[in-house]
């Protein structure tokens, strides 16, 4: 038996909108720790890891570990039927091939049940070790989204370089090239607008903008995004989900031929 009641149901709606472009089908894993997902895109270039901790739910019952395969477009279709202020409850019986999403209006005057068929998904689970990163950039998520969008009208790839001067996003294409530099900027009264750069050593990596743009669909979940870079590792683009967990996107770099 599984029963997870999320008062801020809009979080789940936003999570789905953030990942459904990248991943079509995925297993949601439910355990005593929380509700989680790990999935790669079809070309195995990017990986998304989601965690919604058990403590973040108003009610969290998960009698045994359960993995539920869902088509994310179908799940998004159902969650779009929930109001932004609705409480969402996810329910499943052991051994069942369906999951039920229950939507309750804040005044409790409307209750809806949407039952969705589960699917068998043979997915690979990767072990991601904790790493020390050469540079960690924290910046407003809306700013990062704007930069990725602007650069993708010029080129296909972005070079992200961190030096003590700041973080530079560069691209080039047929029509020309572009460089955007963001310097450290810690505004005490508006922490959500801060740009903070922690650099152990300078780092410069190249990534496909198509994926970066897809990651920025998570911007509505968090005012800030954290970008962790090391020369030998995929970049980690993390959006914290208010007191509940996170959504992390891992993207393998491009290298010179």
């Amino acid at each position: 038996m599984l029963e997870l009641r999320l008062v801020q149901g809009s979080l789940l709606k936003k999570v789905l909108e953030a990942i459904r472009e990248l991943v079509t089908d995925a297993n949601f894993d439910c355990s005593g720790t929380g509700f989680s997902l790990q999935a790669m895109d079809s070309s195995h270039v990017a990986l998304v890891a989601l965690l919604l901790r058990a403590e973040g739910f108003e009610h969290y019952r998960c009698d045994r570990n359960l993995s539920m395969g869902m088509n994310l477009n179908n799940m998004a279709k159902m969650l779009r039927c929930a109001g932004n202020d609705d409480i969402i409850t996810i329910k499943a019986d052991d051994g069942s091939d369906t999951v039920t999403f229950m939507f309750e209006s804040p005044k409790q005057d409307k209750i809806a049940d949407f039952e969705m068929k589960l699917m068998d998904i043979d997915s690979e689970h990767l072990g991601i070790p904790d790493s020390e990163y050469q540079a960690i950039v924290r910046m407003p998520s809306a700013e990062f989204m704007r930069i990725c969008k602007d650069l993708s009208s010029i080129g296909d790839t972005v070079i992200i370089s961190v030096t003590k001067e700041g973080v530079k996003f560069s691209t080039s294409g047929e029509i020309g090239s572009a460089n955007i530099v963001c310097r450290q900027n810690q505004t005490v009264d508006k922490p959500e607008e801060a740009t903070v750069i922690e650099m152990q050593e300078p780092v410069s990596l190249t990534f496909a903008l198509r994926y970066m743009n897809s990651f920025t669909k998570a911007s509505s979940l968090s005012d800030q995004v954290t970008i962790s870079l090391s020369s030998e590792l995929p970049v980690v683009v993390e959006y914290k989900i208010a007191e509940m967990g996170y959504i992390r996107f891992y993207l393998a770099p491009k290298i010179e031929e």
Binding site: V45, L126, T206, Y250, A252, P253, K254
Partner: peptide, 14 residues
């Protein structure tokens, strides 16, 4: 431009 690496080149299956 450049060769796109795969995420599985960095992280192994559990």
């Amino acid at each position: 431009s450049g060769v796109q690496l795969s995420i599985t080149e960095f992280y192994r299956s559990k």
